[in-house]
Design a protein around this nucleic acid. Sequence first.
DNA 1: CGGATAGTTAGCGCAAGGGCTAACTATTGA
DNA 2: TCAATAGTTAGCCCTTGCGCTAACTATCCG
Lengths: 112, 112
Amino acid sequence: MAQYSAQLDGLFDALADPTRRGVIRRLGRGPASVGDLAGEFPMTLPSFLKHVRALESAGIIRTSKTGRVRTCVLNRERLALAEDWLAEQRRIWEERTDRLEQFVAGTEEDQS
Amino acid sequence: MAQYSAQLDGLFDALADPTRRGVIRRLGRGPASVGDLAGEFPMTLPSFLKHVRALESAGIIRTSKTGRVRTCVLNRERLALAEDWLAEQRRIWEERTDRLEQFVAGTEEDQS
DNA sequence: CGGATAGTTAGCGCAAGGGCTAACTATTGA
DNA sequence: TCAATAGTTAGCCCTTGCGCTAACTATCCG
């Protein structure tokens, strides 16, 4: 559970950057090389590579090198982890508002 | 659109911390004071207060002070922004895998 | 009034994040 | 073979993040 939390740390942290979100969006349409990806962002290759590494160590992408080209692919399962956490918070919230509505309904009944 | 991106920066950044996620989960069950919330986390009040401020400036919670007590409430709409972004990435991904499947189906047809 | 309570501010130390340049390795292809 | 290409590493700078303590303000209550 502590590990689950640490995974979410890395995951959300990776998402908290426009460059990295841009990479995710791009990789949704299919794999791409580091160089091709980098071309879309206004920074040097070494700087960009750090973002790639960040995404990789968060588990959001997987990369492999053939020849001198490193190819990146999206790992949807990891993104689903973030979706799941948010969905659970929604569940907790909605459970409570449901109870609140029932309470209000009960109160109205008492007053009638 | 640039502003939308900056909002997501703050949003995901706020989510990238176990203390702040804990506060969100707790506030899902209903409003609470700063002191009550702080009691659940192993840090000093001033340190904790920074997290509260972070959540507030990300728009995830709203706070108000009456007397000497500051009460915090969750702002679900803001969390929905994060859900929406993730849902869009899923859409992009699924659109592509759909096309891929159609392509494969077409290829099999050719070979028959 | 005066002590206890709830929060707040200021400032400090340290680690990490995100950009850069310079210099390097490993492939590829003419 | 050798120049171009694709990525990689090291290291620097500056800002930000997150914990702390000390000291302060603003209520509340006996």
